[in-house]
Design a protein around this nucleic acid. Sequence first.
RNA 1: GCGGGCAUGGUCUAGUGGUUAUGACAGCAGGUUCCCAACCUGCUAACCCGGGUUCAACUCCCGGUGUCCGCACCA
Length: 572
Amino acid sequence: MENEGRMSRLASMLRRRGVILPSFEMYGGVSGLVDYGPVGASIKRRVVDCWIDHWTGIPNVREIDSPTITPESVLQASGHVGEFNDHMSECKGCKRVFRSDHLLEGVHENPDTLDAAKLDDEISRNGVCCPSCGSSEWGISSPMNLMFRTSIGAMGNARAAYMRPETAQGMFMLYPALFRHFRQKLPFGAVQTGKGYRNEISPRQGMIRLREFNMAEMEYFIDPESPPEVDLDRWGSEAVLLPDPEGPFPGEHRVSFSKAFESGIVRHPTVAWFLAMTMEFLEKVGLDPGKVRFRQHGGSEMAHYASDCWDCELLGEHGWIECVGIANRTCHDLLAHEEHSGSSQLRGWRQFDSPRVDSRDVLAPIGSVIGPKLKDKASEVTELLGELQELPDSLPFNLDLGDGSVVQITEEMVTRKTVEVTSHGEYFTPHVIEPAFGIDRIVWHILDHNFREVEKEGENYTILSLNQEIAPFDVSVLPLFDKDGMGEMARGIATRIREIKGIVVDIDSSRSIGRRYARCDEIGVPWALTVDHTSLEEGSVTVRRRDDQLQVRALVDDIIIRLANGTMEGLF
RNA sequence: GCGGGCAUGGUCUAGUGGUUAUGACAGCAGGUUCCCAACCUGCUAACCCGGGUUCAACUCCCGGUGUCCGCACCA
């Protein structure tokens, strides 16, 4: 097998050249944590920049930045605390793991209130059998919350907190500020990139499951009754979709995104739009479109907050890996935060085309009668009468106060009349569609898809064919020899290039020219400029293109202009 | 988290109860070459951590950590 060991050769190269390395290695390392070295950090930064440019290209999308430390109450509202504080028990017979409290259902009244010791105690005392194999031998239950717990403040006043498991909550916290910023008009969105933390039980597969990782998420808020116009043809080609196998479209579908939406495979237009935009982004950063597919979550797989979710999976050395999730989170988060925080600012306003006039019959309370008669219950009764949806046919009638007590409403307490209410619009809770990207996984797959092992004059040779936008350096300047003024000239050229905004330049004068070309190729530098004797006389250098190793001669002044406006290809 | 394999310069590796601990590649300095990892000379650089056995441990044993494979987990 030719590809035997490709992954370890790639990993070796990444370590050797300072792209991605295990963290804290001199202290033994920590599994699930990695460093981006001097080459990798630059690649990662450019991927993130590219991502931000891509998504903020949508009108009304701005970048925000929130803390990674998050108070417990926020994550209680979002469901992260409750969903992940489960204790797990392992069956000693078949090694399967179950939620400890689920094992006690029907045995104990509220199993979810028990702590670890009580759970174990109850499980063994009741002789609970394994639902899978029937054994009643259980290991000690262990808590399984994937969040890193911490506390804000010292000593007794400390407030419980977690390192954020996703950047999304920061965007929800800023919803009121975003709503004001965008002049109270939907749709709008916010993007955020940054670290997220999950204390994985057993991280494996290097870059794929990290405990601290880079995420990039957008929360796009829409009015569910009038979703935005979308352009599904921005990715015109077909993509591979794998809808829920339990749903109406089992199997693999190779369709365009507009077809996928028209045929109902993708239910929501905004979701379909983001699938297309995701495809567009992935190609932009140099992933192989033939190694991309979209898979819809089945019901049981769905996150607690989502109503529909498509994973974008990339094929690499680790198989198909989920790198992007596009979820319709509906109104789940905003509603939850409204309930838990008591804030009333997590809403959108839907203006009616013309004011609506509702007329309805009411029993208008007569304060001068109700007040003296009902005393301290008067205000409550007044309120309840206002909320009454169906009026009683005749009076008197009994009004249920909801606390068990009942008040008789008599003829003289109220007047029956028709009121007209004019409303110009209504509040609603926006829905949110979220594309969430795992940046590290994407970087890994970019490296994987672009790591080319070729043969050059009988030798093994590696080229990292990165797109220039995400290459660690745009160009490397190489004096053929560091003598006769070639070194000085090269340094002068590098200085001029360094002044071009957004262009990163490297200079290398050690060892033979062929060796330096090889080093550039290995870390994906797309252009090399070689300064030779002719350069000193004519002000020209040879330009070498990484991907085919072709060379042309060009004037330095021309190259500077071409680097600045991105037309280097025009030289060939 | 369970079971098994592995852990030696930057990378890939050889090897031993007492060695000056291999070799290749990479790197550095010089020479040479004068546009694709060439060549010559010299140099830098390693036994994962902790405990134990032993006169002596890189080597044997135990524990930890990391890593790989399988099982489990992965909102």
